[in-house]
Amino acid sequence: MRLRRLALPARTVRLRFTALYGVLFLLSGAALLVITNLVSLGSTRISEVAPTGDLLAQNSSLAAAHERISLLEGQLAGARETQSHQLLVGSAVALAVMALVSIVLGRIIAGRVLRPLRTITAATRRISADNLHERLAVPGPADEVKDLADTIDELLERLESSFAAQRRFVANASHELRTPLATMRASLDVAVAKPEPVPPQTVALADRLRTELDQVDRLLEGFLVLARTQHGALSDRARISLGHTVSAALEARAADIVAKGLTVHSDDLSDSAWTRGSRTLLSRMADNVIDNAITHNHEGGWIRVAATLDGESALLVVETGGRVLDQEQVARLAQPFQRLGADRTGSGDGSGLGLSIVAAIASAHGGGLDLQARPEGGLRVAITLPPVAARAGVPA
């Protein structure tokens, strides 16, 4: 029974309107046919008695008149029966045609009535956290539909203000916190650098505090990048080669790769995958992906990198080996402060913002991030971006 219910069509407003208008049209057509039949039957009864007086006047013999009348009455009864049958068949055909026409007209009228609502729904679906500045701006008279569209526009305006205030707060707080962090780091350096001998416990505590301060500094930097990425406009847009960008990220981390004994497989880092965007943000995106691949990898592991064109997208894929991961947990890594556990935290920043920054940068450029747990173990990070054609002489 449950499967049968799931197979039924959804009871949409248009379907209900179509049924309502169809029934109204069908009832109107049926009423018109009934009235037509009543009028036709009435006129037939009148025509039955009309010839009688004329026939009696034209025949000189009463017997001949009766015979003539009986003959005409039989012919008239047959004609009336034939007419009634034809009228019944015609009415049935007309009713069937009217039922079909009623459904078609009901659907058309329901579609015209609901067209403004469909326009509002489609426009609302296009608006997300990245384009809250857009408005429905539905034209037309001041009716219920216009009031609904104006109400949604007012809601979007309040949401835009709220999101902007949140992003400004994150950016301003991150900037303001950098000053006390720098002061604390300088105070530690001054305390450790005094001429008199410093107790080993103090040196160890200072090193631990520096590590924590660096961690907080990286966390604030991540907040700043997220706030800038989600704010919207990208000022330094240019043609970027994904292959060159990820190659630069690998070269910058060559020492870390060697220290961990990792093997890098570069399937395809040619100039085929180009996109348009912010050089700074796309470089940060590649850095975060490579950092994640190095940090959350085991000693002597491997990294596979590819930058290609995949249909309508420029594709950057970074894969790593390791233990088998849970796909549900992997899917949450694109959200801030999500991790897979202490065994994958490693010695990196461990802030839980790395892949969320990657997702935000990809989204700001019109792309997306796909995280998949490899069946044989490890993680596959795939970034899709809108492609552009590479031009000769354009630097990466």
Rank of each mutant, 00 (worst) to 15 (best):
residue 172 N to K: 07
residue 243 G to V: 09
residue 241 S to T: 00
residue 52 T to N: 14
residue 68 R to W: 12
residue 142 A to S: 12
residue 50 A to V: 06
residue 167 R to T: 11
residue 381 V to T: 14
residue 206 A to M: 10
residue 77 A to M: 12
residue 233 A to Y: 08
residue 31 A to E: 07
residue 200 P to K: 10
residue 250 L to I: 11
residue 140 G to P: 05
residue 366 G to K: 00
residue 11 R to N: 05
residue 256 D to A: 14
residue 228 R to H: 03
residue 77 A to D: 13
residue 28 S to D: 06
residue 204 A to K: 15
residue 12 T to L: 09
residue 150 D to A: 03
residue 334 A to T: 06
residue 238 A to M: 08
residue 193 A to S: 08
residue 219 L to C: 07
residue 154 E to S: 07
residue 92 A to S: 10
residue 296 H to N: 10
residue 363 S to E: 09
residue 24 L to K: 07
residue 195 P to L: 05
residue 393 G to M: 08
residue 136 L to S: 02
residue 89 V to S: 11
residue 52 T to I: 15
residue 128 S to W: 05
residue 175 H to N: 07
residue 365 H to C: 00
residue 301 G to S: 03
residue 247 S to W: 06
residue 333 L to V: 00
residue 99 A to N: 04
residue 36 T to L: 07
residue 171 A to T: 14
residue 136 L to P: 02
residue 333 L to E: 00
residue 290 I to Y: 13
residue 245 T to M: 01
residue 86 Q to S: 15
residue 26 L to F: 13
residue 56 L to N: 06
residue 311 G to V: 11
residue 155 L to P: 01
residue 8 L to D: 01
residue 237 R to G: 08
residue 58 Q to A: 12
residue 262 L to N: 01
residue 127 I to M: 04
residue 119 T to E: 08
residue 155 L to Y: 05
residue 94 A to V: 01
residue 177 L to H: 01
residue 75 Q to P: 04
residue 114 L to C: 10
residue 176 E to T: 11
residue 246 V to D: 00
residue 83 Q to I: 09
residue 296 H to S: 11
residue 320 T to N: 15
residue 231 H to E: 14
residue 8 L to Q: 12
residue 63 A to C: 08
residue 94 A to K: 01
